[in-house]
């Protein structure tokens, strides 16, 4: 090939790549860079930023300066919000897996013509507005809601159980909202799963439980990993659900960030918290994928 056509081919390749590059530049890297930049600026009095370099925002992510005597201490408020975000997201992922895996299994083992209907039933809530779904959960668990009225009506309890505005409420809400994201990839993996392998395992003296653990699970594991990530990541940054069901008392990272850009009028801190959230997600993903991969190696 000649030099000229070589460079021409290269140019063509770049041209074909350009849509992807544009998206990366303007939709991903660009905003991210702006957020990083803001996190190193000084907050403006009425929101926004003043163009003056400062590391205060990063400092404030984990440390608090006492109002009166200027002493430094760990920011308990922030740390407990980090911890709650991680904890509730893990809980949500776990519960979504426990419910989603059998659901996907159930659907994948229906006759072919029935599967789409089942999947549709799973997906319909997902197409409903997030706020409406969240308020629906609220309606069910609030003190005068369906569950409490029913229990009181049946005489099982005489005081309503406080479920709303608790961590339980947030977890329940997020589980409900993100469940389809767990079911979908597991179902996709299960649909490709060759169920004659189950027969082969039964035939080779494996009990039901062992068939599940040794044959079905390892093979659909990529689906489980994908589903867990799809549930965990948005849970960690969830904003609406903890806001509505946590009632402003049980903040999560998403709410904390919103607070800084809103009432807190501390955009740099909000930016620094956003980057922190991103970092937590990345670290969690790396740890998770590594662990999943290692199990693969040892188990085969």
């Amino acid at each position: 090939m000649t030099q000229a056509s070589d460079t021409q081919a290269t140019r063509r390749r770049w041209l074909l790549l350009s849509p992807a590059l544009l998206i990366l530049l303007f939709a991903a890297s660009g905003p991210l860079l702006i957020v990083v930049l803001y996190s190193f600026l000084t907050p403006g009095d009425y929101g926004g930023v003043v163009w003056k370099f400062s590391t205060d925002a990063w400092f404030n992510v984990v440390v608090e300066r006492d109002f009166f005597d200027d002493t430094l201490s760990f920011s308990d408020a922030h740390l407990s919000i980090f911890w709650r975000s991680v904890k509730l997201s893990l809980m949500t992922t776990l519960v979504a897996f426990i419910v989603g895996f059998p659901t996907a299994y159930f659907i994948a083992t229906r006759p072919k013509d029935k599967r789409d209907i089942w999947m549709l039933l799973i997906m319909i809530p997902f197409w409903t507005n997030l706020l409406i779904r969240t308020f629906a959960v609220m309606e069910i668990i609030r003190n005068e809601g369906v569950v409490n009225s029913l229990l009181i009506g049946l005489g099982i309890i005489d005081q309503p159980i406080q479920m709303l505005f608790t961590e339980f409420a947030i977890t329940l809400g997020m589980f409900y909202v993100y469940l389809p994201l767990m079911v979908l990839p597991i179902y996709a993996a299960m649909e490709r799963f060759d169920f004659s392998l189950v027969e082969a395992a039964y035939d080779l003296y494996a009990s039901r439980w062992r068939v599940l653990r040794r044959v079905i699970f390892p093979i659909v594991k990529p689906g489980v990993i994908a589903g867990s990530i799809l549930v965990f990541v948005p849970s960690l940054g969830a904003y609406v659900t903890p806001r509505v069901l946590g009632g402003g008392k049980q903040l999560m990272l998403g709410n904390l960030i919103e607070l800084q850009f809103g009432q807190g009028r501390n955009w740099p801190l909000g930016a620094a918290l956003s980057i922190t959230l991103l970092a937590i997600v990345m670290v969690a993903l790396i740890v998770y994928v590594r662990a999943a991969g290692r199990e693969e190696m040892s188990h085969g």
Binding site: D194, S196, L197, E199, A200, A201, V215, P218, I219, G300
Partner: peptide
């Protein structure tokens, strides 16, 4: 179809 376990 043999039904060998593909992950082993």
């Amino acid at each position: 179809n043999y039904a060998l376990f593909p992950h082993m």
